[in-house]
Amino acid sequence: MKVKVFVTPKATVLDPQGAAVNQAMHSLGHTNTSNVRVGKTITFEVNGGDSPEFRQKLDKLCEDLLSNPVIEDYAYEIEA
């Protein structure tokens, strides 16, 4: 299976990178953009099938390593 994890700065946390990108988009003439947030995607492959136990492990991995719950949210997609 393929796993895609999306990590984004929490809505309440200021995202200086997103603000800088928004500024650059404005200077390119895209002046109607706002609230740009920059996150990251982490993809990997796993042997085995999807199951509640697997998702539990995946949540733990996301909380322990792939994201920092103090400042970031995560979401994932699993492809068979």
Binding site: V13, L14, P16, Q17, A20, N68, V70
Partner: peptide, 10 residues
């Protein structure tokens, strides 16, 4: 406690 993120001015 807490976390350290990118400087506000980048």
């Amino acid at each position: 406690p807490g976390a350290l993120v990118r400087n506000n001015h980048m």
